[in-house]
Write a protein that binds this DNA or RNA. Structure first.
Length: 423
RNA sequence: GGAGAGAUGGCCGAGUGGUCGAAGGCGCACGCCUGGAAAGUGUGUAUACGCCAAAAGCGUAUCAUGGGUUCGAAUCCCAUUCUCUCCGCCA
């Protein structure tokens, strides 16, 4: 959620920057500002009315103590009148606040000034690419066939026990999962992140705090009886640790890493790129989250981008980095880098990480603040990124490293798997 | 699931109808003391919104949440949520 004061003072700029996301918000911004004026008037009216009632009540108290109860009755009536009035004023104020909030929540974050305008993924900017494109044998096959050949991932079994998008990992496949998780966690810890194991279900307030609600209701699995959501990413519980907190400025940057299962309904994306591991309802991911001072969040974004690059380098996967265009960015983000690895048998670039700066958008929703050097309370900036999501990494590892002898495991990972050739 | 107890500021904890945003302590910040530190000591230390060009200041709200009683509620009543203890079940 954008800050009201920011909208009020930079209305034109907000509209201009939202246009990068192909959103014409001019009218809505005017509405919000109009409501804001009325809201403040209503607030003042209500406060005045209550203030008067408070003064009179105190007088009544004094009269009672002095034993002049009879003199108090007229004052009592006056207070009753004021209270009645205050109730109406308060209802009016609530209406205005609600109306304004409903508008504010539907307004996406403003993109960073450097974000390219554009509508589709084709308009994303490739800002970096590295690694050698693998040359495969003519008989090379996609990962879902390799999964069956080596009996390491069982999609059919997942269909039987749960449904599509919930595979079983078996034997060396399970081992590979575990190795990747540890590899990612150990690297993050070495880079200064604090490891955290979060709950996999969160309440409504948390879903709202990171922006999944109300925008993406329906994309999360929901446990009706307990009113809890299965997390689509560890970002949700981890960032919400700091909900309603005022952190010390000396604590910056706060760096957390968490491994978790992620659950996504993926409603509306059936039939497209869903073969094998490309799109699952449940998958594993290691997520890094940082809370940072507003002046340093973009340096931090670059640092996180570099960190993710080192992981892919160690895994010897060819990858490229995209700066997302306005139209392809998420609702909550100001600037997002997507990482894609090349999966050679499918001949496809697969997204394996998304690193974003949300500036104060999430912080405003969840009231995550710090005290500046003047003692003023201000909103923090939040950032996060996948480091990394497992399934597509596995897909490309399998496809790119297939040989007639088995699947070659990169050296950095072999320490974790305990084998350097998967047979 | 059954029975009971409870929810007050960063933390502990007092407060059962009237200047209570809330005693006291701890913690924290700054100062004094000290060669330096500890101890000691002094001062300060919630958040949101509104008024004001802004600061100072003032006003309003907030003692889990929502409603109610009352001229007046942290304090009384109702509902909800959550936490704890015991019993049951259980990895």
């Amino acid at each position: 959620m954008l800050e009201l004061s920011y909208i009020r003072e930079n209305t034109f700029e907000v509209a201009q920057r939202l246009a990068i996301k192909n959103i014409d918000a001019t009218e809505m911004l005017q509405q919000i500002i109009g409501l804001d004026t009325r809201r403040r008037e209503a607030q003042t009216e209500l406060d005045n009315s209550l203030a008067e009632a408070n003064i009179i009540s105190r007088e009544v108290g004094n009269l009672m103590k002095a034993g002049k109860a009879s003199d108090a009755s007229e004052l009592k009536n006056r207070v009753a009148e004021l209270k009645l009035q205050a109730k109406e004023l308060s209802e009016n104020l609530d209406r205005l606040v609600n109306e304004q909030n409903n508008l504010l929540v539907t307004l996406p974050n403003v993109p960073h000034i450097s974000v390219p305008k554009g509508k589709t993924p084709e308009d994303n900017q490739i800002v970096h690419s590295e690694g050698e494109m693998p040359v495969l044998q003519p008989d090379a096959v996609p990962h879902w066939e390799l999964a069956t050949k080596y009996d390491i991932i069982d999609f059919e079994l997942g269909n039987k026990v749960t449904g599509a998008g919930f595979p079983f990992y078996k034997g060396k496949g399970a081992r590979l999962q575990r190795a990747l998780i540890n590899f990612f966690l150990d690297n993050a810890i070495a880079a200064g992140y604090l490891e955290i194991q979060p709950p996999l279900l969160v309440n409504e307030a948390s879903g709202y705090g990171t922006g999944q609600l109300p925008d993406k209701d329906g994309q999360m699995y929901f446990c009706q009886v307990d009113k809890l959501y299965l997390i689509p990413t560890a970002e949700v519980p981890i960032t919400n640790i700091y909900r309603d907190e005022i952190v010390k400025a000396t604590a910056f940057p706060i760096k957390n890493v968490a491994y978790s299962n992620c659950f996504r309904r993926e409603a509306g994306s059936y039939g497209k790129d869903v073969r094998g591991l490309n799109r699952l309802h449940q998958f594993d991911k290691v997520e890094i989250v940082q809370i940072q001072h507003p002046d340093h969040s973009y340096e931090t974004l670059e640092e996180m981008r570099e960190y993710v690059s080192t992981l892919l380098r160690k895994l010897e996967l060819p990858f490229r980095v995209l700066k997302l265009c306005g139209g392809d960015m998420s609702f909550t983000s100001s600037l997002t880098y997507d990482f894609e690895v090349y999966s050679a048998a499918q001949q496809k670039w697969l997204e394996v990480s998304s690193v974003s700066n949300f500036e104060s958008f999430q912080a405003n929703r969840m009231k995550l603040r710090y005290k500046d050097e003047f003692g003023k309370t201000r909103l923090c900036h939040t950032l996060n990124g996948s480091a990394l999501a497992l399934p597509r990494i596995v897909a490309s590892l399998l496809e790119n490293n297939q040989t007639s002898d088995g699947i070659r495991i990169p050296a950095a990972l072999a320490t974790y798997t305990g084998f350097d050739l998967l047979t």
